[in-house]
């Protein structure tokens, strides 16, 4: 049996430490992880369920929990981690959600070939709709303003994101410059003060 002390560790450290301990077992065995918050318990439980390990958790005191995993022979998939499994923070506490802002600055994603770039940005905005954790705001400026207007291939995705509570904002100066002011089809119009505020107050800005 291996004991892991993850007291005081924030996600994803408890999951990472536990995974390392499981590797050290080199086969079947028990790993006991001590954590101090319920989110860590939930994340460890979710990880165990994904991997097919036996799992139980106990509350030892107000701020101490023990999560026990039983690893059976052959259940350790050596190096076969999918992208999904490596996402350690599966549960984010309510109220502690990151303020993620996506800044779409062009009608294409990346540089190289714009035909491909248009397909990629469309794919990116679709993939956003499929995430468990949605961004708080998506900002569209400069060439990105075209994506929220009539004729954009991403309108369906942006409307469903808006329906899920994501704030969609397009730069008014940009709509005016591209003569698209009458063509906005999703979300609201914003100005540089709001754009600056959203960007500076964000925990994370994603620029595709």
């Amino acid at each position: 049996m291996i004991q892991v002390n993850a007291l005081g560790d924030a996600c994803p450290i408890p999951v990472v430490k536990t995974k390392n301990a499981i590797k050290e077992l080199h086969g079947a065995g028990i790993v006991e992880t001590l954590v101090d918050n319920e989110i860590a318990v939930q994340n460890l439980t979710k990880m165990a369920n994904q991997k097919g390990y036996g799992v139980k958790s106990e509350k030892l005191s107000e701020d101490q929990f023990r999560v026990t995993m039983e690893i059976k022979e052959g259940s350790v998939s050596a190096g076969e981690e999918s992208a999904q499994e490596t996402q350690e923070c599966l549960v984010v506490p309510e109220g502690h959600k990151k303020n993620v802002v996506v800044a779409v600055t062009a009608s294409v994603m990346g540089t190289g070939n714009d035909e491909l770039g248009a397909v990629l940005i469309k794919g990116f905005l679709y993939a956003l709709t499929q995430q468990d954790e949605l961004p708080k705001t998506i900002l569209f400026y400069n060439g990105g303003a075209q994506l929220t207007c009539e004729g954009s291939a991403s309108l369906e995705d942006l409307k469903s994101l808006e329906a899920l509570g994501v704030e969609i904002l397009t730069c008014g100066t940009c709509l005016n410059y591209y003569k698209l002011s009458e063509k906005l089809a999703v979300g609201g119009v914003t100005n540089m003060y709001e754009i600056t505020e959203r960007l500076t107050k964000a925990d994370l800005v994603v620029r595709p």
Partner: peptide
Amino acid sequence: GRIIPIPR
């Protein structure tokens, strides 16, 4: 239908 990134 539509183009999407390949589902996981």
